[in-house]
Design a protein around this nucleic acid. Sequence first.
DNA 1: ACCGGATGATACGGAAGAGGCATCACATCC
DNA 2: GGATGTGATGCCTCTTCCGTATCATCCGGT
Lengths: 297, 297
Amino acid sequence: MSLNAIELRQLRYFVAVVRQRSFRGAAAVVHVSQPPLTRQVQQLEDALGVQLLIRGSKGVELTPAGATFYTGACNILDLMDQAVARARLAGSGHLGRLDVGVFGSAVLDAVPRIIVAFRTLYPHVEVVLHNMDREHQVQALRERRITIGFNRFFRDEADLTWETLLTEPMLVAVPSGHPLASRAELSIDDIASEPLVFYPRVERPQGFTHYLMRMFHTRNMTPNIVQDVDDVVTAVALVSSGLGLCLVVESARNLQLPGVSYVRLRREDEVQFDLSMIWRTDDHSPLLRAFLEVARG
Amino acid sequence: MSLNAIELRQLRYFVAVVRQRSFRGAAAVVHVSQPPLTRQVQQLEDALGVQLLIRGSKGVELTPAGATFYTGACNILDLMDQAVARARLAGSGHLGRLDVGVFGSAVLDAVPRIIVAFRTLYPHVEVVLHNMDREHQVQALRERRITIGFNRFFRDEADLTWETLLTEPMLVAVPSGHPLASRAELSIDDIASEPLVFYPRVERPQGFTHYLMRMFHTRNMTPNIVQDVDDVVTAVALVSSGLGLCLVVESARNLQLPGVSYVRLRREDEVQFDLSMIWRTDDHSPLLRAFLEVARG
DNA sequence: ACCGGATGATACGGAAGAGGCATCACATCC
DNA sequence: GGATGTGATGCCTCTTCCGTATCATCCGGT
């Protein structure tokens, strides 16, 4: 019957016979007796409609067609092993692609550290970073364009889970020549009248700037904002040029721009920000679990 | 049982299920009922130790591992089809590699024509030409380094078969300024006293030069050899420079060097040479048969 | 020239596996 | 809440695969 579909068993037997140049020898290798080998190779030849082996009295020899099919069969068997191995790796989270949403100052310190740690543990996972703000992260999570997001101030959502990764104190970026630059720490009062580089206040409630503004308002102060900038790097660059002071999270200390000193805010002021990560609650993929474990340290 | 080897049937079913996003839909495609699909995919997952599909109430969905394995499975099935097609092509002589031994003047006309004709009929056969003399061809045939050889004066050998392809008349290559260059044809007598570019006479009996020398000796003449050269192209180049005349086979007419005229030898002199091809008698490969058929026209 | 030992091919009986049918458990939609 | 869709399960039949024993050949040593 040439209607019979070719099965991997036939390839395995055929390859063994070719490698051993003998049916009997191959029988020992594949742990079967010799007759099944003969039959399976016959069926293979029938299905192909081509003779693959020349049976001699002291072994077998390949026909030209047999030689070309042999290389193909080897490739297929190799690919099979690879596919199995890769599937198992993917099943344990060691292979695949992880899309991560990041935003602003989160990328300055904690996230890179986590990514590096993860990549050394899971070298075959392709980690792709997407820069997007909080709302876009939530949307991208729902659309499965990212698997996990990093940000601050996540709201509780029905289908998402978030978890605080770490809490960062605030620093004040001060131009090096400024009188306050040499202080060991600063209070809110110290900087209230100083020129400030600030962030756009059009953000949604519970945002970063919303929180900062409330900090001033609860003390009945109004910050002296001289410039709005929508990302930390540019803000610190303006501090570097002497335009004013700027409130940043501690991660920003990694921005080593010339002429910028970082001074802590007084602990008593309790000004600190969470860095959180968020993912789909129903996502049980091994990749996410593995990544979360690394992120939690 | 994870001892079970994975078979192609399982890949075919799995791929069908993924493509249809449904077991029942896939059942129609692969012409089986739905329960076997369920079972085969279960066995596949058992063998891998990894869940590949998420069964929902309105179809199935791939896990990350399933997606990884799916691409692998598709590759394997494609490769399988290719391997089958290639084996069938090879079985009919339409695929493979043909090593051809050629020598000297044989490559100037007849062999290129045959090669070109063969390559248009069998475009997927890789034809490799090896330049080697007669004795090396015989040796290479026995060692299977070549499949067929072209040459003149093959001796009968027990394990080899040869066949005359065509018979070429001899020409005389004459410098264009020479008095004989304008003649319609020449006889042996005409050239006996002329300066001749000739070929090394150290060759084995039954060789090309041996035959040429006998041609003179039977007429009680001695050629006036002014230079020995071991290949036709160089010989004609020397004719081009006016050093002397040279006996060549008709194929050499393709050598269009400036200042060289070709004049026929008189038919009565019956000076002509066979071009033969030789192969292993026990070689029944479809490639050789196909090539012989093309060569014979 | 013959016999021993190797090769692959074949015949037959039993066991494992695949497929089909009927059915179940569950979710979704109208 | 029933109708209809999904995949999973149990049971039976039939195919197919495997193992033992045997055969037909060929090669090599004596």
